[in-house]
């Protein structure tokens, strides 16, 4: 399943790259096609009722794989953020804390169009539709029987906004090519298909031969459930590769008839941007 997902994701990036918009040769800001790999920390916080009675939180490992393809005027941003780690009850003082293994997967595909720019100031504003798929999965360790898995997932469409400012720090050489970028992003899926555990948190197929971990039939259509924003700071090297430090915050809430869930994932990720020429 994981291999299939990786393959499809790679094919998607390749397809968009091959069909990408040619680089703007005239631009004095760094544009083009990039593959981005990142690693860092994320803090996952969860408030749910199926397996837990207190909120759980903890520092986890965060990874990012992204693709950026296009020009100054229009580009695609494919972003896959994956976090995993162990979370424990918030403010727990017990010597043997309860634990959950937490996994958080967030995929977003956005074609951005520039709708405002200030050339002298090198400020660019972009907007575009976003297709987002997200799933949070947790395995509770302990004596709680068959309901030890909890999850929430969403497949949604909405809009995304991005503001970017390109600049140079040193003005000594008055280099027209800008080396630094500060960026702020907002992503808001408006309509989503929300997947959630059923009342007991056990898949309906648990007592059949073809048992499934997740009961996809337990879902509803929700609005504005998955809100994400972030800021990043990028430094472009001479060879057009780049280094980036990004902070991202994702808030996700479900509201089914039973067992509503609220989760937050805050991540700080250091990224390497490889220019594909």
């Amino acid at each position: 399943m994981c291999n299939l997902k990786t393959l499809l994701f790679t094919l998607l990036i390749f397809f968009i790259y091959k069909n990408g918009i040619s680089q703007d040769k005239q631009s004095d800001i760094p544009t083009g096609n990039y593959i981005v790999l990142g690693i860092g920390n994320s803090k996952i916080s969860v408030n749910e009722t199926i397996n837990t009675s207190v909120p759980y939180t903890g520092w986890c490992t965060a990874t990012a794989v992204e693709g950026i393809f296009g020009s100054e005027k229009h580009y695609w941003h494919i972003r896959n953020a994956y976090s995993f780690g162990t979370i424990t009850p918030h403010q727990s003082v017990l010597p043997n804390k309860n634990t959950e293994e937490a996994y958080d997967e967030n995929l977003g595909i956005t074609p951005y169009w520039r709708f405002y720019h200030n050339q002298p100031q090198h400020i660019y504003l972009y907007a575009g539709p976003v297709v987002n798929a997200k799933i949070g999965l947790r395995f509770k360790n302990g004596a709680i029987g068959n309901s030890s898995v909890s999850y929430e997932g969403a497949l949604g469409i909405g809009f995304a906004l991005k503001a970017a400012k390109y600049f140079n720090i040193s003005k000594k050489h008055n280099n027209p090519f800008k080396r630094f970028k500060a960026e702020a992003t907002l992503s808001l899926p408006v309509v989503s298909k929300i997947f959630h555990p059923n009342y007991l948190g056990i898949s309906k197929t648990a007592l059949t031969e073809n048992r499934k971990l997740i009961d996809w039939s337990s879902n509803y259509t929700g609005y504005f459930n998955n809100f994400e924003y972030g800021v990043s700071f990028t430094y472009y090297l001479k060879n057009k590769n780049a280094l980036e430090l990004a902070y991202n915050r994702n808030f996700f809430g479900t509201n089914p008839q039973y067992n509503p869930v609220k989760t937050m994932n805050q991540s700080v990720v250091f990224k390497l941007l490889f220019n594909l020429k």
Binding site: T49, I50, N51, T52, S53, V54, P89, S92, L94, K97, N98, K140, G142, A143, I144, G145, N146, S147, S148, L200, G201, I202, A206, L207
Partner: peptide, 12 residues
């Protein structure tokens, strides 16, 4: 099938 939950004091 046994199903579980947690109490506010973290007992299971």
């Amino acid at each position: 099938m046994p199903v579980g939950f947690e109490l506010p004091n973290e007992w299971q």
